[in-house]
């Protein structure tokens, strides 16, 4: 099984390759340079594994939420690659990939939060399962840190840039249950690859044209009616 994974939804740009039992990756915190990095990173990984592009079995991508342009870059690259190689695409939540950046701790709930700008966060809660995967505790959403609804849990781990921006508000919500928090973590392609492999084995790969971004923030402009002009 050879799977190439791309994650460009946030400031981190990363590519990972599953080659048999090996998982290798390249990652850089490089805002605005993602466009230059992805394909050369993929070339490096394929060369390191000693396989050609045609040996790939699937393309995986972090389909957001995150920066709109970054999410589309990753999805469009994955679509193009998969179309050329007649491969399916596995889409993975960038919040789920981020959640796997939390240190392993049995029984703890993970809050993955990405700063969504404009005073909001992208958020979702998970728990690790027994096989190194994730169980979603709720739906991913966009909201303010203050209005974030959380499921019941006795221990919390928080990861992502949402913590860096809203640590004060969030820590008040998690008083007494917060075990760890790291605001310097980003979704990474290694975790996209890990999660995608499970999805692929479960039969959840899609035709490339069906692999689409998830933005969560869907109201991006006012219609003429809403502007009061029609």
């Amino acid at each position: 099984m050879n799977l190439l994974a791309i994650e460009t939804a946030t400031e981190a740009c990363s590519v990972a390759l599953i080659h048999g039992d090996e998982l290798i990756a390249r990652s850089e915190i490089a805002p605005r340079r993602h466009t230059e990095l992805v394909l050369p990173m993929a070339d490096e990984l394929l060369a390191e594994a000693g396989i050609g592009r045609h040996a790939l079995d699937a393309i995986a991508v972090g389909r957001g939420p995150g920066a709109f342009t970054g999410v589309r870059l990753g999805v469009s690259l994955a679509q193009g690659m998969a179309l050329a190689l007649d491969l399916p695409v596995v889409t993975v939540s960038s919040l789920a990939a981020l959640a796997l950046e939390a240190p392993e701790e049995e029984g703890a709930a993970i809050l993955a939060v990405i700063d969504a700008r404009m005073g909001e966060i992208y958020a979702a809660c998970y728990r690790r399962d027994d096989n190194g995967g994730l169980v979603a505790l709720d739906d991913e959403r966009i909201c303010t840190a203050a209005s974030l609804m959380l499921p019941e849990a006795s221990a919390w781990q928080v990861v992502g840039t949402g913590w860096a921006t809203y640590a004060t508000v969030l820590s008040q919500r998690l008083t007494g249950t917060l075990h760890s928090a790291d605001g310097s973590r980003y979704p990474q392609a290694v975790h996209v690859a890990e999660l995608a492999l499970r999805e692929f084995k479960a039969g959840h790969a899609q035709a490339p044209e069906l692999a689409l971004p998830v933005y969560l923030r869907d109201k991006v402009a006012l219609t003429l009616v809403e502007q009061g002009k029609a």
Binding site: R53, R72, S76, L77, G80, A84
Partner: peptide
């Protein structure tokens, strides 16, 4: 438009890359 251009450029560039 930068965002619109990026869609075609990313898909097109990746397609060519994968096809060699």
């Amino acid at each position: 438009l930068v965002g619109a251009l990026l869609v075609g450029a990313s898909a097109g560039r990746a397609l060519a890359w994968a096809l060699g």
